[in-house]
Amino acid sequence: MKGMSLIVKTVTRWIKGFIFLFGIYIVLTGHLSPGGGFAGGVILASSFILLTLAFGKEVALSKLSKNMASELDSIGALMFLTIALLGMCCGGAFFVNFLHRSHPGEAFRLLSAGNIMLYNIAIGIKVGASLFMVFVIISAIKVVLKDDAMKMIRHK
């Protein structure tokens, strides 16, 4: 049987969605409460890591393949950079918070900080995808000592 025991699997099945949802919540309310893109991204990645631990790598990779994670990684970074560059076009300088100028919103509401929420979303995608990638790659490659030389062995 792949993965861990039935108890772990059942609990994981119940809570994986909630962990993911909590990650999204932390990302979206980054400008109002502790947390933000990085912390939320780590929580998003940890829901996939939990899946890997409980069910084995195949199940986790079927939900988010390595290619997809790599693309998301690049997309997150590019999204962040695009918003920063849009500040140059719409606001006159790199990283200008142009959305806040046109739609200031009511303080302490979800839509109140302009670009900051978009930055947090971009960071969340980037951190979530790349942390999951790091975990998968570390678990996929094993370094062994063979005849006084290190060899990297790729697990199937």
Binding site: S70, E71, S74, I75, A77, L78, L81, A84, L85, M88, G92, F94
Partner: peptide, 21 residues
Amino acid sequence: MSIIPLFVAIPLASAFLIPMF
């Protein structure tokens, strides 16, 4: 419009565009 931030933005953008495309 000043081009100073582009010295950082351009290589950063292409560093992430290359693996995508």
